[in-house]
Design a protein around this nucleic acid. Structure first.
Length: 105
DNA sequence: CTTATGACTATGA
DNA sequence: TTCATAGCCATAA
């Protein structure tokens, strides 16, 4: 498996508590490189999954929308997982970032 | 070496 | 409001 950037990405994502969400850029920023938001997504694509300690379902777009098209079996699946953790969604189908956006302490 | 691509983000129409 | 485009940078060919 890839190491370095990917492992760092996993490490950051792993720090996101349940019931919280983080954006790609935010994870990248936590790694010290906010310009690599795209790689965070790419790393999550290659991630071992939730079972591997990488809750990729907690990572969303900057506007709170979920990953397009594919994901864990469908965006509906991702949303369901987040709701199961206590994350609330807005009427527009996006995560209530104002309330659930994670901040690196 | 250059070109193409991508689970992003910001900006403009 | 939604849609399209540009910029970002690592990896692959």
């Amino acid at each position: 498996m890839e190491d370095g950037f990917f492992l760092r990405a996993y490490d950051v994502v792993r720090q996101v508590p349940a019931g919280r969400v983080a954006t790609y850029g935010q994870v990248a920023a936590a790694m010290g490189e906010p310009r690599k938001a795209r790689y965070v997504g790419f790393a999550l694509h290659s991630s071992p999954g939730v079972a591997g300690g990488v809750p990729c379902h907690r990572i969303v777009f900057a506007d709170g929308s979920l990953a397009p098209g594919f994901a864990f079996g469908g965006p509906g699946e991702q949303r369901r997982m987040l709701e199961a953790e206590g994350v609330g969604f807005l009427p527009n189908g996006k995560v209530d970032m104002r309330r659930y956006k994670w901040e690196a302490l």
